Amino acid sequence: MHYYIRHQSPSTRHWQTYVLNLPNNPIRRVFTRTSFISSKLSLKLLSKLSRKVSLALVLLLLSYSWSLQALPANNRRAGNRSDAIILPPSPLEVIKFVRPVIKYGADGYAGPADIWNPHYGFLVQSTNPASYGLNFPTTGADGLYFDLIIMGEARDLRWESPIRGKGITVTVARRPIFNSDGDVEYRVTLNGQHARAHINNPHPRRIDNEIELPQTFELVGKNRSGEEIVRYGFVLQKWYVNRGRKFDTFQNQLSWCSSLGYRMVQVKDLTNSACRGSGSGPHCRGAISATPHSTGNHYQRRIGAGFSAEWGDTGIYTRAGFENHFYWTSDAAGGDYQFTVFMGGGYIGNHNALPNNTNYYGLCTTP
């Protein structure tokens, strides 16, 4: 059985692949159990393992293999049988991270370590099609993107792209860069319904009948021989349409969303901020946000816990049309006030919604 081992030279930073042929069952059992490295290991640990352990492990195993072969024939098991199950070698190509914008993703903004890495984004939560809904993203909007960071010989993958759903298209393209560990990155871009042609129209036409949710997307990367190398799936539950840079009153933004056949967002559609700890006060009291809750009045990077908690600072996605500012929500804050959410970090505020008083940005969602 052949095993392929990748090693990066510290001097040249180039990756080299070594082929190891393990001829007997005992040594194959040892090697297969040690060859798998979970995609959830930290990047630093993975780097250290790949450089310092792989070659030493090969030499150790070869030494053990030679010792086994030197034993007298009458000391070996008949037919070289083994009572253990021999596991197949693990794939060399692994999706390590799924990275949206990571700004506002460290310290208090960071999600749990098994979900979020402050430097590289979300971790893959499921490779089972039945539970793709656990993966990022669950929300989408036209012009948003994320990067698949893949370990292994993945520079020439070919993707079934674009994938055209009902009202949503997903495309995959290779990024012309490598990170410091030699990993390959592929950018995944979402395109779908938007209302840029109707930003200044107070009564745009309905567009909600052009989209179907939820929608499942499966990205399959193949080598030049057509063999599947990596696969990633996700389920979009909600789709968002913004009004660009149009500042307007609460009532006008509410009416604009309704004309599209959408609804104005609620606080829980945007953030999992909690009215406690840092940034809390009367301005956020009573707001109902997504769960699991953050530790303060700011989002925490989680999957399925609100649009900004998934995508981060949406103002960085320049082609998506979002602003790093307050957006109206349909949640009443008492009296003449409505709750608002600052998209840069998921901060919850409230502002006077009376006509001719306060203007903020508009954001709609469906369903």
Rank of each mutant, 00 (worst) to 15 (best):
Lys103Phe: 13
His194Lys: 09
Thr12Lys: 10
Ala70Lys: 07
Tyr299Leu: 05
His293Asn: 14
Asn272Asp: 15
Gln338Cys: 08
Gly152Ile: 14
Tyr120Ala: 15
Tyr145Leu: 03
Ser294Met: 02
Gly105Ser: 01
Tyr109Thr: 10
Arg285Glu: 15
Ile199Leu: 13
Gly286Tyr: 07
Ser63Glu: 14
Asp83Arg: 15
Leu148Phe: 10
Lys48Gly: 15
Leu57Gly: 05
Ile288Leu: 15
Pro89Val: 15
Asn324Val: 08
Arg301Phe: 01
Pro204Leu: 02
Gly167Met: 00
Tyr109Val: 02
Phe31Lys: 09
Val265Ile: 07
Glu323Leu: 05
Asn117Glu: 07
Ser39Glu: 12
Asn359Ser: 15
Thr358Ala: 12
Leu190Ser: 00
Asn74Gln: 12
Thr34Asp: 07
Ser131Gly: 07
Thr216Arg: 14
Phe342Cys: 03
Tyr64Glu: 11
Asn117His: 11
Ile149Trp: 14
Leu123Gly: 10
Leu59Pro: 02
Pro26Met: 10
Trp116Thr: 11
Asn223Leu: 03
Gly261Met: 06
Ile86His: 13
Thr358Trp: 11
Asp181Cys: 04
Pro112Phe: 00
Ala309Asp: 09
Arg231Pro: 04
Leu92Asp: 14
Ser11Ala: 13
Thr365Asn: 03
Val184Thr: 15
Ser90Ile: 02
Gly140Pro: 01
Gly226Asn: 08
Val230Leu: 13
Gly312His: 08
Phe322Lys: 06
Ile115Phe: 09
Thr12Ala: 15
Pro26Trp: 00
Gly133Trp: 06
Asn135Arg: 08
Gly140Lys: 02
Arg174Asp: 06
Arg164Trp: 09
Lys238Trp: 01
Leu190Asp: 01
Ser54Asp: 06
Phe339Met: 11
Phe234Gly: 15
Gly315Asp: 10
Met1Tyr: 02
Pro89Ile: 02
Phe339Asp: 14
Lys40Thr: 04
Gly221Ser: 10
Ser330Trp: 00
Ser180Tyr: 03
Gly108Ser: 06
Leu59Cys: 10
Lys268Thr: 03
Thr34Ser: 13
Arg196Met: 08
Leu270Asp: 04
His325Ser: 14
Thr169Trp: 01
Phe136Trp: 02
Asp142Tyr: 07
Pro292Asp: 01
Leu71Ile: 11
Leu71Gly: 01
Arg319Ala: 09
Gln125Tyr: 02
Phe339His: 08
Arg81Gln: 09
Thr365His: 10
Leu20Gly: 15
Gly105Glu: 12
Asp269Met: 07
Val98Ala: 12
